[in-house]
Amino acid sequence: MFPYIVRRVFVMAFMLTILSIITFLLFNAVPTDPAMLTCGKTCTPDIVAANRIRLGLDQPLYVQYAEWIKGIFVGRTYGSGSATFECSTPCLGYSFRNGEEVTTMIVDALPVTLYLALGAFILWMLIGISAGIVAAKNHGKWQDRTIMGVSLIGYSLPVFFVGLLLLVFVVVRWNLLPYPDYESPFDDPVAFFQTMLLPWITLAILYAAYYARLTRSQMLETMGEDYIRTARAKGLSERVVFRKHAFRAGLTPIVTSAGLDLAGLLGGAVITEYIFSLPGLGRLAIGAVTEYDLPTITATVLVAAVFVIVSNLVVDILYAAIDPRVRLT
């Protein structure tokens, strides 16, 4: 098991390197001149040129890349002389649009997205997997048909539709909850839960529907395996057959899916954050894109990609923990 993890970590480090290069090139591929963007209203070619030097944009690409990476690990200093300012570790760049370090913006937005994604994740895994199991156990009966029917609806409804619907009815019409206004759970737990409840439900409806279907089909497939017949031939009760022999085997694809879905959300649940005015990574990214805030765009892309890669590692390790055959390869 240990060599397997070490190997996966090495692969992950390699992928992160490739990824940072691609993200960096993306920054440079955008057809706008960052020096121009930072110039302000009274712009002269002199100022643009000075900005270019100040931002290090006059350097060759690989030097810029090295500076950027250096910034992440040890921080960096922009400009020289009186116009110098420090960007502390981990420095993901400086947003001239907001006059703020990108790292600070990310650090502010990250917990919001984290709470949103994790809350929804727990909710949908609980609902989805249990509904899927109930459906599989009652294959072909009314429970199965009901769950599959409902999940098909849940799966078909787009997030913006469900989100708006919940907002309009629960908040505006029925006044069951106050209008969403994000508060940190440490400052005001009640307001936090009141704000997060609807976003959690919105995301959970979509994903729970998908996981119910996935769990059901996995369990049905696994229950048809030869080793399940063996387990029954041993005289094990249906309960043990299902819980010990079938569920663990059916779990692997669910774990893979769950890891990737969670990672996707951690990169920013753009639509949900927008509808419920949550100041998370998704909103940060969209805001940055509309304002041509290049350092922020690069940073959000990098953060989202890091989540995907790290969760891939976690999935790989979980996979090996569940399936002994994976450990050898």
Binding site: E225, D226, Y227, R229, K234, L236, H245
Partner: peptide
């Protein structure tokens, strides 16, 4: 019948790789 299975009557199958639990 379940109590008899695996105790008083038992069964072996064609393909032992798929008939044994992989995990």
């Amino acid at each position: 019948v379940r109590k008899l299975r695996g105790d008083e009557m038992a069964m072996i199958f064609q393909d032992p790789l798929s008939a044994l639990h992989p995990y």
